[in-house]
Design a protein around this nucleic acid. Structure first.
Lengths: 219, 219
DNA sequence: AAAATATTGACACTCCACTGACAAAAAAAG
DNA sequence: CTTTTTTTGTCAGTGGAGTGTCAATATTTT
């Protein structure tokens, strides 16, 4: 789990950063546009390195999207500007760290390691366990009474969102935002269908309908 | 909850940092020596701001001690040196962030907030508690004397509006605007009906009629 | 290409938000 | 105090919104 999503439009900087970090043992997925970055499933990464200015939008907008999803993935922002305002704005928007260009690769490396280190602590919660149900976030596996249950991508993401906060009520909109993301807007009925799938796979009891709102997971 | 241990030997810098952070709502415990800092119980704090050089030892030594204890408290290092080596060394030794003097107070503030945010999740007000009644906004649950009371969507919304400001009088129009929204305009009698439902479910005492106006919630 | 998955739309069914009517209570008027 | 007027309490019936379900279509993956 040392996968990093690098969002940087400058080809030469991106290339050198990638090769530098790869040498240090990280797995780098380098994209040059926000539109590309939005297609990625953030669950697959343990850190996002995000440029401030990008051809198709502000990096800070993407940052806000990430933080609203509340996945807990750390974000390290890069900027060419020396403006303190930008710096503060970035950090207050939820960035975990900030680096001003030009910077030394070794400082970047150090700060990357800090983020990996601190986020790894949160990653300790890779198991959600209930009476008959066990969800392994790291392996993306679901066990029902010791036997594996196959889950599709959306099913698994939906399940972990709900099961990650048992008892908490989720509105359909919140679910769409956090599981599907901002760029795709399926109808709210899509949520129902996937809930149906989950109910069929692991039983009705876990999922409680909250009429007019959405659903909640009961342990 | 927002207690910060500031370890800084320079009197003028320490004083100005302390007053600045106090103004921002933090509780600052400022010590000028490592020996003083070591006497403190780190459990009492949610962040340590640590100078690199101190009269009775290196700040980085204290940093290592903290990290070896594995308490999980974040540390923000300060240094007068511009040496990249120091920076990297500090971060690799377990510091969560790093600032090189001179720095802007606002940048310090932003980085402090980042640390506070990631370490201590600020608990949101999701509970309304009264003598026999507990309302959990997150779970959308209502407990009356420890036993759950089923609520429909409108009932729950109405209850939380009134119970959110106990003693405050709400006119029917205000209630309609805030619970039902602007687009739908049911008659004001609808409010009465829902108040009736609530009275039947959790007792008459909580809801007081204000003739000619509307209702208020009494704790 | 085929297979797996995601999404939409349709239908039936349930439930509850809302209305309207009347009773009861309070306030105002006489 | 009595009567009239206004406001609120109460309840049952109904229409419509919300949901479960499944099949059909679109999309992605293999």
């Amino acid at each position: 789990m040392n996968q990093i999503l690098l969002v940087e439009d400058d080809p030469s900087l991106g290339e050198s950063l990638k090769s530098f970090l790869v040498k240090e043992g990280f797995n780098i997925d380098w994209v040059q546009q926000l539109s590309e970055a939005r297609k990625r499933d953030l669950m697959d990464y343990s850190l996002v390195i995000l440029d401030w200015m990008l051809p198709d939008g502000q990096g800070i907008d993407f940052l806000k999207e990430i933080k609203e999803k509340n996945i807990g993935i750390p974000v390290l922002m890069l900027t060419a500007r020396v403006d303190l305002i930008d710096k503060v704005l970035g950090l207050e928007s939820g960035a975990n760290d900030y680096l001003t260009k030009p910077f030394e690769p070794r400082e970047l490396l150090a700060r990357v390691r800090v983020q990996m280190r601190t986020s790894h602590k949160i990653e300790e919660i890779t198991l959600l366990e209930f009476s008959e149900l066990r969800i392994n976030l790291e392996r993306r596996e679901v066990l029902l009474q010791e036997s594996a249950v196959e889950m599709t991508k959306m099913e698994f993401n939906l399940l972990t969102l709900l099961a990650g906060s048992p008892g908490r009520a989720f509105s359909r909109e919140e679910i769409l935002n956090k599981v599907w993301g901002f760029e795709s807007y399926p109808s709210t009925r899509t949520v129902d269908t996937h809930i149906l799938q989950l109910r069929q796979k692991i039983g009705d009891n876990y999922f409680q309908t909250i009429r007019g709102i959405g659903y909640k997971f009961n342990a």
